[in-house]
């Protein structure tokens, strides 16, 4: 397969946190426009994958390679990965009092523009875009003035993540348990937002424990992650199978570290 058609390529990735192996030989290829769901039990390494790909401190890559748009991801700093089109929507977005949402959003958009050789957006133009984005994700415009995620409810934080996605227009979005803590209405708002951003130019990794989210965001592929590896892949029907069976079939063998422990 030619690399040109692959947006993200993960080859035999091994990664650890505090010297504990979490990702143990993961392979995945994603082409532009595809939506991949990664499902799996708690502790399988689902969130770790997002942190490793985004370059979080303390998440060590032991071996393997990852390329994004043909570039070696691990050659880049966290912010460079973001500017190259990687976007991680957090399960628990951080609250930053004192830094206004608007200032934060503009700084992110400007950073990406600068990386692409564009000039900073004017405040007036940006405000217009941000207000439109607010409307799309159903957040009051007043949220732009508030501190980043400060005092936002769980659903508001997720919608704020979505708003950032709308403004940054990334190539690859990793949605980390975006459904957690959301009621069905909030879930629909987020799913609609995501669906509105689906295009041939943009791919998604939807990380989730439950099949529920995939009723709204239809994946092209479903992968089961267990003990740091993808153990099964299939189409959307696999998610339904998992819903019926649960994850217990995966635990026929105890995890390695349990043996060691």
């Amino acid at each position: 397969m030619s690399n040109e058609n692959v947006l993200l390529s993960i080859k035999d990735l091994h990664a650890s946190v505090e010297e504990k192996n979490i990702i143990k030989g993961l392979n995945l290829e994603i082409k532009p426009g595809e939506v991949h769901a990664i499902m799996g039990p708690n502790g399988a390494g689902k969130s770790t994958l997002g942190y490793v790909l985004s370059g979080r401190e303390g998440y060590e890559v032991d071996s393997g390679s990852v390329s994004l748009g043909g570039e070696d991801l691990f050659d880049m700093e966290t912010e460079e990965r973001a500017r190259a089109g990687l976007f991680l929507a957090f399960q628990y977005p951080v609250e930053i009092p004192g830094v206004s949402n608007l200032e934060f959003l503009k700084a992110s958009v400007d950073a990406t523009r600068e990386a692409n050789g564009e000039e900073a957006i004017t405040s007036a133009d940006f405000l217009k875009q941000a207000k439109e984005a607010c409307k799309k994700v159903n957040l009051p415009v007043s949220f732009l003035k508030r501190g980043v995620n400060e005092g936002f409810s769980g659903g508001e934080k997720k919608r704020n993540e979505l708003m950032q996605m709308l403004l940054l227009k990334p190539k690859l979005c990793i949605l980390d348990e975006t459904d957690s803590g959301l009621d069905i209405d909030a879930l629909q708002v987020v799913a609609e937002g995501v669906n509105s951003q689906r295009s041939d130019e943009r791919s998604f990794i939807v990380v989730t424990h439950y099949q529920r989210l995939l009723d709204y965001i239809k994946p092209d592929y479903v992968h089961v992650l267990s003990d740091g590896k993808i153990v099964k892949s299939g189409d959307a029907s696999l998610a339904l199978e998992l819903e019926a069976q649960g994850y217990s079939w995966l635990q026929t063998e105890p995890a390695e570290d349990e043996l060691e422990g």
């Binding site: 370059g55 912010e79 991680l88 930053i96 004192g98 830094v99 934060f104 950073a111």
Partner: peptide, 19 residues
């Protein structure tokens, strides 16, 4: 968090300190 949104480490530090 700020870095995952493309903001450089140095700029993020200034934003947080001022915040």
């Amino acid at each position: 968090y700020l870095q995952t949104r493309g903001i450089s480490r140095a700029k993020a530090q200034v934003m947080l300190n001022f915040g």
